[in-house]
């Protein structure tokens, strides 16, 4: 049984088609990243799953239950971190958790849950109205974890969190996944998806443009990695050795450096071993992966400038040829 399945899901707001004939399947036990620029239709899709909005056409099931007809069967079994929510400003953090526990008929310890999401003991008895955005996000995450749900649906879980908070959130998602929970979360920020997801689906203009593992996506879009080997004496022989290895699409010498384009990740080790065997002395190896950033830009056509997020790793720049030159860094 699929944890989430949508069939021909369509949602129109007047003339605007927010979600267009979407067929999506999230398997049980996986961490599925739902990626796309702002306005791609991610939240609309999630709101349909939660019965906050009703589809214009098509349908969706969550844990096998129809998202509208059987909504009452779904909510006890899932944990939800919605987008654009607010807490009850006059109630304390702990009271929020107690309320969630009461509705889910669970026996969790509020403090243990708040500990897991990193809400400090002092803050737990403060009113949520005094909380920062990040603290609200943590509180709502703790509410979602109440009752050990089979499925976590999180809409932009990293919004409002600082880099440290985002890492904690990723660890939390991983731990939940390891304990058997299916996690479905949306993001417009690539790194967050890359770090924790088993599979990702990329949504653009209400349409699913790709569903695959990150490795699979790299391969299918022709994402070769480039190996740069600094050799003592680069020779034509070394170039030929490298070029003959399966998984290496091309090799070229420039100065002291041998550059190889590698399709199969496993071929990288072979390149090194074979060059050593051929008598070359390797002084340095640098590998440049195709960044998800450029994959994402390719998939979403670089249309939506708001959505781009620059992964702050130094290798991104080299691979940014695909990137829309006008795009600005968001977030």
């Amino acid at each position: 049984m699929a944890a989430i399945r949508t069939s021909g899901l369509t949602k129109q707001y007047g003339d605007l088609t927010a979600v267009d004939d979407l067929d999506l399947e999230v398997r049980e036990g996986e961490v599925f990243g739902f990626l796309g620029p702002n306005g791609a239709g991610k939240s609309t899709t999630i709101n349909t799953l939660l019965d906050f909005t009703r589809p214009t056409a098509g349908s969706a099931t969550v844990l096998g239950y129809d998202s509208h007809e059987d909504a009452d069967e779904i909510s006890p079994r899932v944990g939800v971190l919605p987008e654009g929510f607010d807490c009850y400003p006059r109630l304390t953090g702990r009271r929020h958790i107690e309320f969630a526990i009461e509705t889910k008929d669970a026996d969790d310890d509020p403090d243990e849950l708040l500990e897991r999401v990193g809400l400090a003991p002092d803050d737990r008895s403060r009113r949520a109205g005094e909380y920062s955005t990040g603290m609200r996000q943590r509180l709502a995450t703790a509410m979602a974890l109440v009752g050990d749900p089979d499925l976590l649906i999180m809409d932009e879980p990293s919004s409002g969190l600082d880099p440290h908070g985002i890492r904690e959130m990723q660890n939390l998602v991983r731990r939940e996944a390891d304990s058997g929970t299916t996690v479905f979360f949306s993001s417009h920020i690539l790194e967050h998806v890359e770090a924790v997801c088993d599979r990702i689906g990329v949504l653009n203009d209400g349409t699913l443009v790709a569903v695959d593992t990150i490795e699979g996506l790299r391969e299918s879009i022709g994402g070769d990695a480039t190996m740069r080997l600094a050799l003592d004496t680069p020779t034509e022989r070394a170039r030929k050795v490298a070029a003959s290895i399966e998984g290496v699409t091309s090799a070229a010498v420039s100065g002291q450096t041998l550059e190889c384009s590698v399709v199969d990740p496993a071929a990288k080790a072979t390149v090194i071993v074979e060059l050593e065997r051929a008598g070359a002395t390797i002084r340095d190896v640098r590998i440049e992966e195709v960044s998800l950033e450029s994959l994402f830009t390719t998939l979403t056509n670089g249309e939506d400038e708001r959505a781009h997020h620059s992964g702050q790793n130094p290798e991104t720049a080299a691979d940014s040829v695909l990137k829309n030159p006008d795009s600005e860094v968001a977030e």
Partner: peptide, 14 residues
């Protein structure tokens, strides 16, 4: 308006 309804309806209450 505040959005707390999403938190509430995300829980079992309908």
């Amino acid at each position: 308006r505040s959005g707390s309804i999403k938190l509430l309806l995300g829980l079992p209450p309908n």
